[in-house]
Computed example of a mutant assay.
Amino acid sequence: MTHTTASRPRKATHSTARHVERSYPLAFYLPGGLIYIVLFVVPTVFSFYFAFTRWTLFESTFVGFENFVQFFSEPGLIGSLRNTIVYGVITSGSKVVLGMFLAVILSTPLIARGYLRSVTFFPVLISSVGVGLTFQVLLDPFNGVVNKAWTAVTGADGPGWLTNPDIALLSVAGIDIWKGVGLATLIYIAGIAAIPSEYFEAARVDGAGAWQQFRNIILPLSFPATSTVILLSLIGGLRSFDLIWTTTGGGPGFASDVVASVIYKQYQAGFYGLSTAGNVILFLVVTAIVYPLSRWLNSRETAL
């Protein structure tokens, strides 16, 4: 009898706890939901609508698929699409490799480790426009500090980092990597810190060296961090505009043009419906690349 009486309160308490865990007041969701609807859903719906119109601030005329046909007939579109994919792959891949490398180093007991972490993350906090304008001065082919140092060391004239069509896009990608690798490093540091220390202790007992620990422990168990870095950096690279525009303006010629800069040029020319259609196309391209990649990475993460 005593056992029965004692068990009932525990059962009721457990049931109540489950009920509390599963039920939240609607007001809890409202702030985030309203912000998401106002700042994402509504602009997205209106963008899809205005992509089929020729519009100004005061009126709009429905033109069907005319904007899309005209946008795809742009002479520099194929080149800009290729540049967008190349830029996204280079920047995201480099951030994964360098972020992992720096995170492994900064996770060891170094002197002034906190300071080094701060220095690594600092470029992330700087405005992309500020970074672009700064590097435009630093990489000036005639008076830039970089080329003056190049000449002093090699005795030859430095390359036109932002004016040579062959390397302009790669130069901007390098700037993007410098600016964004700090965030990738921070994500990897968090991923490495989440790995239980027992794995490393067992590996050291078995005589595993630094490379074996990295290959068999850090690399597979930090895959969630790798997945996050890949997705964030790839989305940012495919949508990149401000850094490219402030450094090269899409030039020289169309050498560093990406889809976002082509869209902005159409907007500058007053073709608002055409630029809106370009934004829709960019949205669909990014979704078509990122969504299946995200599903594949999630399946790999679940399988680990």
Rank of each mutant, 00 (worst) to 15 (best):
L169R: 04
V104W: 15
V104H: 08
A168K: 06
I187H: 05
T185E: 07
L139C: 01
T185R: 01
T226V: 03
I111T: 11
V124Q: 08
R204D: 00
I175N: 07
L116E: 04
L232F: 11
T134K: 05
Y188R: 05
G155D: 05
G207H: 00
G144T: 08
S197H: 11
K179T: 03
I218H: 03
T134G: 06
Y188T: 05
S107N: 12
P165H: 11
L183P: 06
D140P: 00
I126T: 04
V119T: 12
G144Y: 01
G132N: 04
G191K: 07
V104M: 15
I177V: 10
F223D: 01
R117L: 02
Q136L: 09
P220L: 11
L183N: 08
A112R: 10
A210W: 15
W161L: 09
A152C: 04
N143E: 12
L106S: 11
V119M: 09
F122D: 08
Y115D: 09
S128A: 15
P123T: 10
L232E: 04
A225V: 05
T228H: 03
W178R: 00
G114Y: 11
W161K: 05
T163S: 12
F135K: 06
S118D: 11
L219G: 01
W161S: 07
S107Y: 04
P220T: 10
V119Q: 08
G144P: 06
I111C: 02
N216F: 13
S107P: 09
F214G: 01
Y188K: 05
R204F: 00
S197N: 09
L231T: 03
L219V: 03
I230S: 00
V131M: 14
V145Y: 14
P109D: 13
V181D: 06
N147L: 09
D206M: 02
I218M: 08
G158I: 10
N143K: 12
V145A: 12
L221W: 01
V96A: 00
L170E: 14
N164H: 08
S171W: 00
T151E: 13
I177L: 01
G155E: 07
L116V: 01
K148I: 06
G93E: 01
I187G: 05
S92K: 06
T151Q: 13
G99C: 12
P141K: 06
V145F: 14
I192S: 08
L232V: 10
I177H: 00
P165S: 15
L162N: 12
F200L: 12
I192G: 06
L231P: 00
L102M: 13
V145L: 14
P109G: 11
P123L: 13
G182D: 09
V181H: 05
S197L: 10
F200Q: 07
S171P: 03
I175Y: 05
F101W: 13
L98N: 06
I167R: 13
V145T: 15
F122Y: 13
V119W: 08
A112F: 15
